[in-house]
Design a protein around this nucleic acid. Structure first.
Lengths: 343, 343
DNA sequence: TTGAAAGCGTTACCAT
DNA sequence: ATGGTAACGCTTTCAA
């Protein structure tokens, strides 16, 4: 491996000078700098980030800590979009991005959680929570107690080095529900999942609120998918219809799905049953993922600024690391109802 | 930061002994080990991966080097699936996963490319190429010359530390085309993209071959999307139809899309024009991404073992790192035609 | 403006 | 079975 010593020797200077050149410190005389740069080029030298990390006690890397128990989480469009945003911000600031899914089957220890921080792999992390508020409370407490730097997605949080980046989930769900109510719907069902997730609690509350506000509290109807896949969404939809059949009550005339992936599965089942969207049942999704406008009929949905969330989260963390901590500890980005044809 | 020295002091032993315990070396006496483990627990000690990396000249990290010029690459279902597979394998072997998209706007230098290796951030990388064979040839040469360990996706490669993990793209495309021909289609168009990509060259060749074999060489018809999004696929489809209109020739009766994402956009346009799939035009996709079975009509497509490719690639690399290099330098995984209803 | 040397946390060798 | 110590490659004083 080529080291800073090799470069120093080649350029006839000391390692300190090479270091100064690398970091663009203005102390070096122009022609010395020139000699050093040439040596670097000639020897094809890259400073060891590892040695730098050790010496400076900082890795210039941020982690993506995904607590989702689903090992295939990167294929979830929302996660992917967040990741893309994170990657963009990291690249811009010359930070590395480390993927960190704790091997834990869900119930992970504080040790596991803190390992990447404590071992110096990352300076900070963006945390994607899974489970109910209650269940991940301890995770946040551990992170806070450990005094590590992190940003949580879709969840409020206090703490010395804690940031939160959210979107207006409740508002979005409320707006979507109100839209349906405005269209004359009264039987509006919500599709969520047994796999809880902070944003879903908020979306659910927005739906509930809108229903109550319209005096439709008695019509609140929820069906849960086993997971966050389209197949799960189909299952939830089927269960819902069967429950109505069994209880002899009319089908809902509108569905608000916890996300677009679920909505896609639900629409598939409706088509199977010969139910027409939106004529027989209106469907609204959540997230506005890439395919929302390409399903048939094009999906009305609540747009979530996922890319921006990832980007902003990383930017906040990097600013904090570089000694210019954002004063805004909590960022709430707007959602927007995108009306297409499904509802 | 808690160091190995703190643990040593707490347990009343030397750092070397602590190190031996950490690595489970059988030289330590059981009760010494016990004392050390207690100290580790008590002090909440995590060995610094950075220091380990420096000392052992190995980071226990693999990189995902994505040469795709699209910064939103993680949202591509195929990339996401590969990433999921990589993540799974990395986690299993206690390796970290580093995301590495060279900031380069496409034409990246050898320096940039090798930086993560040379700087000790990663021990090896999975490389997702973009562009034509010719255009990325130099990238592979640089990697080979630098003697770094890597696995290329969807591209054959020779080299001391080079592996390749492919799927049977050409076979898949050929089978899909033959299926269409068997169904009586003669006017079969292929949708590709100006953004070339190794697998697409193979898919295209499979299509061409099947057409020629059936004596349909004159009917080969290709329309290119500007990118690999559904919107691009829609554009390519529109262009194709307009070209037929302009030239007064009949529309193709079948479409083989370069991937499912493109197929989705294409089907959208067909629906817009009142063309019925598959009655008027059959559509076959490629990849079998999650939503393939949920579009309307459910998409016939060629399944690609993307998850497994990512997983196997990382496994090969790790075996090589750990001194047990796989003898098989090239892995070809099978594709499979999944017949649903679109074609 | 440049250089010498200590130290970041760990491991591997050589002693004991 | 355990301990002392010199590296690993870099940055950061401090001195020249």
């Amino acid at each position: 491996m080529t080291t800073i010593w090799d470069v120093a020797r080649e350029a006839g200077v000391s390692p300190s000078t090479v270091s100064n050149v690398i970091h663009g410190r203005p102390v070096v005389k122009p022609d010395t700098r020139q000699r050093v740069l040439e040596a670097i080029e000639k020897l094809n030298f890259h400073p060891s980030r590892v040695a730098q990390g050790l010496r400076q006690q900082s890795s210039r890397a941020v982690g993506f800590l995904v607590l989702d128990p689903n090992p295939r989480w990167p294929t979830d469009p929302l996660h992917a979009e967040v990741l893309a945003g994170m990657s963009e911000a990291a690249t811009e600031h010359d930070y590395s991005l480390l993927l960190d899914r704790p091997s834990g089957n869900g119930c992970l220890t504080a040790r596991e959680l803190l390992q990447p921080f404590r071992s110096g792999q990352i300076d900070a992390a963006v945390v994607a929570l899974a489970g109910t508020s209650a269940s991940h409370q301890h995770v946040l407490e551990e992170l806070n107690r450990a005094d590590v730097l992190f940003a949580v997605l879709e969840r409020e949080i206090e703490g010395r080095c804690a940031y939160s980046v959210m979107s207006a989930n409740a508002d979005g769900a409320r707006a979507a529900t109100q839209k349906l109510i405005g269209d004359g719907h009264e039987q509006i069902a919500f599709l969520d999942s047994e796999q809880m997730w902070p944003a879903i609690e908020l979306r659910l509350s927005g739906y509930r609120r809108a229903m109550h506000e319209a005096g439709l509290g008695d019509h609140i109807l929820i069906s849960s998918s086993p997971d966050w896949t389209s197949t799960g969404g189909a299952t939830a939809m089927r269960n819902l219809l069967e429950r109505c059949d069994r209880e002899g009550r009319p089908y809902p005339t509108a569905i608000l799905a916890g996300n677009d992936v679920l909505a896609v599965g639900a629409m598939h089942v409706l088509r199977e049953r010969g139910l027409c969207v939106p004529a027989n049942i209106a469907v609204i999704g959540f997230d506005d993922f890439e395919f929302a406008r390409y399903v048939d009929p094009p999906l009305t949905t609540v747009r979530l600024p996922a890319h921006e969330m990832g980007k902003r989260a990383v930017e906040m963390l990097i600013r904090h690391i570089e000694g210019d901590p954002p004063t805004q500890r909590k960022l709430v980005l707007p959602t927007e109802l995108v009306v297409r044809q499904s509802g």
